[in-house]
Structures are given as C-alpha cells and as structure tokens.
Design a protein around this nucleic acid. Sequence first.
DNA 1: CCCTCGATCAC
DNA 2: CCTCATATCGAGGG
Length: 366
Amino acid sequence: MTQRIIIHADLDYFYAQCEEIVRPELRGKPIVVCVYSGRTAESGVVSTSNYEAREYGVKAGIPIAYAKKMLTSVQATFLPMNMTLYEGVSSRIMNMLRTYGDSFERVSIDEAYLDISNLAERNFDKAKGIAIQVKQEILQKEQVTCSVGVAPNKLLAKMASDYKKPNGLTILQQGDVTKFFERLPVNRIPGVGKKVDEKLNEIHVRTIDELARVGPVCLIDKFGKNLGNYLFQASRGEDNDPVKDKEQPTQLSRIATLKQNSRDPQEILPLLNKLARSVLEKLNEEKMECKSVSLIVILTDLSIHTKSVTLESPTKEFETIAESTNTLLERFIESVPNAVIRRVGIRLSGLQRRTGQTDIVTFLQA
DNA sequence: CCCTCGATCAC
DNA sequence: CCTCATATCGAGGG
C-alpha cells in the first residue's frame, strides 16, 4: 500500500470547553467539571478542567476536595457533568468530521481519526490545508477548539495531536520521526502507562530513542508477544492499524458508589437494579442483546473484583440481567467473608445485534 | 476454542 | 480522598 495520511483530532479540555460555550461569562476563569459520587456533598473527582484551572494543578482524576483547596485564592466554578450537553456537541462535530475522510473512527467522545489519504492526494501540503479547514469548521460551527495531528499512521497522528495543545496543529512525517522521538519520554507512546513505564525503567529505558535500541526479542520476552511487538514498532514510528469505523460497542457498563459501605445484599440490591435498568436502556437504544453479564465490585480498599456468567441464549430482558447480578452478588459476598463493598457495577458483554428474528422457542411453537 | 478473571490503559 | 466507561490482553482452566 502507498503511504497513508491520517488525521487525529482531539477536542480541547472538552467538557469544560462545552461549559464555556453555554456560560460565556465564565471564560478566562477556572472551571472544574466534576463527577460527584453522591457520598457526601463534596465527594468525587475532577473529570476535566479548563487551562485556567490547570495552572493551579487542577486536572482530571484528582479529588474534588483537593481541587477546592488548590483554588481557594481565586474565583473558580465547580460544575457537575452534563453529559447530554457534551454528547450533543460531540455528535454534531463527529458527523461533520465523518464527511471529510475516506474512513472515520470515533475513539471517544472527544477524539477521532480520519484517513484522508485520497482526499489529500497523498500530499502532506494538501493534508495540512485539510487539517486547517477541519479546525476552522469546528470552531465556526461549534465554537470548539481542537488539537490536530497529521501523520502517516494513527500512532504518529495521535502523538502529533498530543504534542501541541490546546488549539494545536502538528504535521509529522516519517522523515521527522527520529528527531521527534529524541529524548521524548516513553510514556508519550499510547499504551505506555504507569506499569509499562516502570517495567521499561527497570531496563533503563526512559526515552523513545532508547527504546528503539532494544531488540524485539528482549521486548517480547518482557512484555509478551503482542505488547512487545507493538513497542518495537512504535519506537520506530510504525503502525499499520487501519482507521476503522466502529459501528457498535462490544460491551456496556454502569457503575456507581453506595451511599454507605455495606456487605448486606439487601442494602445493595436497589442500586444494582437501578444500574441494570440504566444499562438495559442503553442496550435497547443500541438495538442489541448480550450473552454475558458481569458484576463489578469495588471494596473499601479500592480493590476491583469481577464475576460473570454466560447465558444460555442472548438476552435483552431486565429480569434475566437483574437475576444474574443478584446471584453473583450474593455468591461473591458469601465467598469473601471480609469484603466490605464501596461501589458496584454491571457490565454486559458478548453484545450482538438484535436480529428481527423470533427466538427458537417461539419459532417451534408457531 | 470458549469461558472467567484480573490487569492495564486512558478517559 | 479515591468516578466512570470501553477495549484489550494474558493466564489459567476446561
């Protein structure tokens, strides 16, 4: 295949930026979008913050209480998540982006890849023009800024969009890779998080150019076939993963925090049923059914446990889901005598499109 | 090959 | 003080 040209677009500080759009008077001041757990009035974590808040160290994942302390000296706004708002803005932008590429891949609410190889006629100057146009259209139609990377594959496009933000545009061609990777920390490679980073540090690899000097056998030995090969290729800026339309999800989950810790199934059931209704609503919207049901349990020590069952036949029924998770919960509590539960969740997997077809029992009865 | 489960990532 | 959702992998058991 000839050389591809891929765009990665990343909507800047997305939830907080959406809030700036609907509350323009807040622009220029710190905004913190929060996930409130409902435990106490203030408990929860920061989902996203705008750059004014980040200057004070307020970023995604930190407890809301920490964020409040960091922002005591300034006038800051703390807002609960408004997913309906963000979904609306996102879907309008994604539908716009979809019209550009030969293929399109939405990777999250605020990120997408476009393959513009043909549109740009395999020419990076044209590709840059398209990227500028994309940024402009998103800004004009939705007042949203984004950071864009243009590169010969998804890996480099993502690393490029990450390089300059907010409101960045970075073109990265294969010939620039050596220079770009020089002294760049390995954790800038997508897929290299805390654990992989630590393991690489063990073999004294801190930067991507250092990683490129490690042999494939060594990497496969340390990280397994899949991740080992990925790291080897990534260190050279190579990636053949195609931009693929992901039409349907393969799993759906819902998780929530208990008002108070408990190991009494009766206290937990109402929340579990609520989660079942919620995740089933989504399953219905997607016109799908599921083959497996998992219970997710997070204990007071924050350890995560999952228990699952595979059903005899795919289901979309509340009774089936609720009964499964209830049984799994009782069984889990029984099997771990000291477990005190903080949060519970439900995951539906083995998802498949609902066929219009009637099930076999109904068919035989007809 | 399928199932279950924990781990990891990144959001 | 500690959210929520998705995908993927590898190990272990069958």
